[in-house]
Computed example of a mutant assay.
Amino acid sequence: MDWLRSDDAVWEQNMDILTFDPIQCQVLTIARDKTGIHTRRVSLTSDQDWESWLATDPLKPAPESSSQINLVVGARAPVEPLEPAAVSYLPFSESTFRKLIDVFRIHGTIARTINRNTDLYNCRSSASWAGDLAMSVTFCPSSLISHVVMYGCDEDITNQIVRRLSNSDLLELHPMVPVALFAELEWNRLDKLVHEKTTALLQRIVNMMNCLDPTMGRNRGEAPSLASSIRDCLEMGNLKNVLQAFKRKVVDMIQHADELEVDVFNPSEGPGGETVLSEAQLHGLKDSGFKIKDRLKHLVDELEGRVQKCEGIINGVSLASQLTAFSMTPSR
């Protein structure tokens, strides 16, 4: 897990691919104690805001807390929706970001990750469509504190993050909570895309079939061009590939949750040999980990269903296009 440590050399190589544009961000501290989940939320914009916030030592464990998540919700830059490098526009100045690198122990490889148009576990969603996100996570086993920065969050995503974390009923704030939340947000985006594109392509198939129906008379309409049908199939094929890639990453998340349970949350040795967790903490982490893995397994099944749906639509458009082309071929 080398990616969880800060690396100054990597940062110096990667800093030039980022763009800094200070805008208002939300910073959340979510702590779990015996009475439940407690959330603190502040809004920060200027360097002075960040300086004042960092001066309060905000990342120290909250009193009586057993686990905690410190989360910077990086606002999305005001760029074009399909700008592939949107999340590389960071909502703070370079000097503030360098301080966050140190405090949140952000590894330098996240710079390349958020500037890459791929779906990576460390953590980046596809930029082929609007609403892509990136995330970096650092977990401290000795204190059960997760330091998280999410990049590219618009107002709706920010509100979802705040609502979901504030209303959580988990017994402990497992370090996979932000990762599972990232997966949920990406699933919602992809599921909406599948619905929109399959609905449009189903209508296209209906239009093609109408062109083949002699009973439609003048209402048969004009068949979509071959070029547009090919374009639609390619776009749906790309969406299917993204779904498959994301499904593999969710499987990786499940495996990582299992590794944490075996290697870190060990009642006999304690995390990293530093602090032995209490029985209540171990029980809470195990219960939370089980719920997270159960949800991720459900996402795997849902993603497989959407992949099959995409395949069905692609086959339908292909067949309808062939039939339409054949019907328009002059008979000899």
Rank of each mutant, 00 (worst) to 15 (best):
L144K: 13
E196L: 12
T138L: 07
Q160D: 13
S126G: 04
L226I: 05
H195S: 04
Q203L: 10
V162I: 11
A223S: 04
L165N: 11
D156W: 02
L190T: 00
M216D: 02
L212F: 15
V148T: 00
R163T: 15
S128Y: 02
N238S: 11
T138C: 14
V177W: 08
W187H: 12
T138A: 10
M135V: 02
S229R: 06
S166P: 04
L239N: 05
T199W: 07
M176P: 07
T138V: 09
V148G: 00
E172K: 10
W187G: 06
T138R: 15
E172W: 14
L212D: 14
M209S: 05
S128C: 05
L239K: 03
D232K: 02
V149I: 10
L201P: 00
G221E: 02
G217R: 14
M208G: 02
E186P: 01
E186V: 00
V149G: 01
D154F: 04
H174L: 10
C140H: 15
S168G: 08
E184F: 01
R204N: 08
D169A: 11
L181N: 05
G152S: 02
A227E: 15
N207I: 03
P214K: 14
S225E: 05
M236G: 09
F182S: 03
I145N: 13
L239R: 07
V162E: 06
L173Q: 14
P175A: 04
L202E: 12
A127P: 02
G221S: 01
N210S: 03
T198V: 07
H174N: 14
S225L: 00
R231Q: 12
R218S: 12
Q160M: 13
T215Y: 08
C153H: 01
V148D: 01
V194L: 05
E184N: 09
F182A: 03
W129G: 06
S136A: 08
L190P: 00
L234D: 15
A183S: 12
P175R: 00
S146A: 08
N159F: 02
V179C: 07
V162N: 04
D154N: 12
S136G: 01
L226A: 14
S126A: 01
N188L: 12
A200K: 10
T215I: 05
K192D: 06
V177R: 09
S229F: 06
L202V: 02
S166E: 12
S229T: 03
Y151C: 05
L173S: 07
R220W: 02
I145H: 09
H147N: 14
I205N: 11
P178E: 12
M176G: 05
S225H: 00
L185C: 07
N210Y: 12
R218H: 13
G131N: 04
R189K: 01
D156I: 09
S136E: 09
R231M: 04
S128L: 00
R220D: 02
G217D: 11
